[in-house]
Simulated scan of single mutants.
Amino acid sequence: MEKLRLLLNGMPTAEQRDFATRCGTSVGYLRKAISSGQKIAESTCINIERESCGAVRVEDLRTDVDWAVIRNSSAQAAAA
């Protein structure tokens, strides 16, 4: 969550809003999740990784999810 906090803090307010919108959420939701340690939905984590160009990875946001399995199954599906 620290990487997400640093990313948001480095953006002007309007850019924060645009980023959150592209991630399918709001700045308020992201700030609340950061401050309370709330679990961000997996789909939102994926959006955050994509929209941050990998600066904030899903593994940084949800350590309780086995992202390696998801990444491997996605790569295998693409190869098929």
Rank of each mutant, 00 (worst) to 15 (best):
K3W: 04
T25Y: 02
V58C: 15
A20Q: 05
K32P: 02
A68P: 00
Q16K: 15
Y29S: 07
D64R: 10
V56Q: 01
S36C: 07
E49A: 03
R31N: 11
G37M: 04
C23T: 09
V65K: 05
N47C: 10
E51I: 05
A33E: 02
R62Q: 07
V69M: 13
L61T: 01
R71Y: 15
R57E: 12
D60N: 11
K39T: 14
V56G: 02
A68Y: 05
L30S: 00
C23F: 01
A80L: 12
C53D: 15
I70C: 04
R5D: 09
R50Q: 12
A68N: 13
P12L: 04
Q76F: 09
A55E: 13
I48E: 01
A55M: 10
A78T: 09
M11F: 13
F19C: 05
R50M: 12
S74K: 11
V65E: 03
R50P: 00
I46C: 06
K39C: 07
E2V: 07
C45Y: 00
V58R: 12
I40N: 00
R71M: 09
L30M: 14
A79Q: 10
R5W: 01
A75K: 15
S74C: 09
A20I: 04
S73M: 14
V58T: 10
E59N: 04
K3A: 11
A20E: 07
E49M: 10
A33K: 02
W67P: 00
R57H: 05
A80S: 08
A75L: 13
Q76V: 13
I48R: 02
R31S: 08
L4D: 04
R62D: 07
D66A: 13
L6G: 03
E2S: 11
A55R: 11
S74H: 11
P12Q: 10
I34N: 03
D18V: 05
D18I: 06
I46M: 14
R17G: 09
S52E: 07
N47Y: 00
A55T: 11
V58P: 00
K3Q: 11
T21M: 08
G24F: 01
I34G: 01
G24H: 04
N72G: 03
S35G: 03
I70P: 01
Q16I: 02
S43G: 03
G10R: 07
V69H: 14
S36Q: 11
I48T: 02
S36G: 06
W67M: 06
A20D: 06
N72I: 11
G28N: 14
A14I: 09
K39I: 12
S26C: 09
P12M: 06
K39W: 08
I40W: 01
A80V: 06
V27L: 14
A33Y: 02
Y29V: 13
R17W: 00
T25H: 02
A68D: 12
C45M: 03
S52W: 09
G37R: 01
A20M: 08
T44R: 04
D64K: 06
K39M: 09
V65L: 08
T21S: 15
R17D: 15
Q16L: 06
R62K: 07
R50L: 12
